[in-house]
Design a protein around this nucleic acid. Structure first.
Lengths: 211, 211
DNA sequence: GTCTATAAACCGATAGAC
DNA sequence: GTCTATCGGTTTATAGAC
């Protein structure tokens, strides 16, 4: 088969995202991909290099929407309370649509797993992805609240992350102990609620659709 | 030594909370406890049974403050907006003081790790701890918003968990990439911010101390 | 109860036939 | 490129001396 490499990579992405690096064995990957165990080392050299490769795939997703892009379209966006609220809504929904509620959600699961259980890929992940996203969102907060403290900006900027982490990682549990339908209802609620709280905490007007 | 068992259990609690079941070896535990490797099987039978035992320790912590206890002291607490806000503040601060910011924080780390990476102890944990805490907090929400949806109550009730999870699990990273002082400032901010958002989302008056 | 030595299982990695 | 068989290492668990 020509795409053995691809089969292995797909299997690895799913397994690493679901169980983490330590709990996944090369034999599990080979079995799920329906290819021979030796192929892992033939194509990737080692289990660790295969893990690096799954990370490259997850990381190379498009960078989230930034406030700069919104300001390029409408430079006066942040001059009114309604505009500020709208900007928060756009950025937060983009974040969730990109990472949380789509077939690509394994990418964020992989990243969160790594955040909580660092492996050798960790510094790369922090420096090339997490730091940039974090700084962008904090910059935005400082546009809205110029004389805020760093800790205040950090907490606000990571608010979508805290919610997404919890519900992404606990998803299988919630589905098992409650139901899949309830999980989907939860997802819609989380996105709306997160956005509303981020807007309310700045004393900005909450758009009708978020009430 | 008479308390070999205790030494092993303490070492295991810390290690399992920090690295998770899979990454901790019996040799690490024995070394940290300064006892012989064989003692683990002498006292606990197996690595898995020792893990179960650490969970029993973590779970048997006092149950969080409930709204019933607050109402027992002041039955009229929820009749005014200020009283409602005060109740939220008390329950949230109790949650954080109990699980997040004290020497016992390994207990919650252990529980969150299990939530994200279920092992055979999982059903016991869910049924004996998480479900009860969750239901208690949701009941409280329904007292405040009688005709709310289940998903709405769930999201609100788990709001402190989402924040605590993220910052507990990412703590070592934040300390490494930023600083320990900043982490402590973050902790104070998270508690205050969480409480304020929970109050604001119900359109209740925010106490002066939380502004 | 404590310790050493070792069994039994599993893992990642590799050699070599095809 | 694919496959089998196996190496070398680590793990949990145990047997048996003290």
């Amino acid at each position: 088969m020509a795409d053995t490499r691809e089969l292995l990579l797909n299997a690895a992405c799913q397994l690493f995202a679901e169980y983490g690096f330590g709990k996944v064995t090369t034999r599990m990957i080979a079995k799920k991909a329906n290819v021979n165990l030796g192929s892992i080392h033939y194509y990737f050299g080692s289990k660790e290099e295969l893990y690096f490769e799954t990370f490259r795939t997850a990381i190379n997703a498009d960078f989230p929407l930034t406030i700069e892009k919104l300001l390029a379209v409408d430079p006066n966006l942040l001059t009114t309370p309604e505009g500020k609220a709208y900007a928060i809504q756009r950025l937060t929904y983009d974040y969730y649509n990109r990472h949380y509620n789509i077939p690509d959600k394994w990418k964020r699961q992989l990243i969160f797993r790594e955040l909580f259980n660092p492996s050798p890929v960790y510094p790369k992940l922090v420096n090339e992805v997490l730091k940039l996203e974090s700084e962008k969102m904090m910059e935005f907060y400082f546009m809205l609240v110029p004389n805020a403290s760093l800790a205040e900006a950090f907490v606000w900027a990571h608010y979508p992350d805290t919610q997404a982490t919890f519900y992404l990682m606990a998803e299988s549990t919630i589905i098992e102990y409650l139901s899949k339908d309830f999980m989907e209802e939860l997802n819609r609620n989380v996105i709306k609620n997160t956005t509303r709280m981020m807007i309310m905490s700045l004393d900005l007007p909450v758009p009708e659709l978020l009430k």
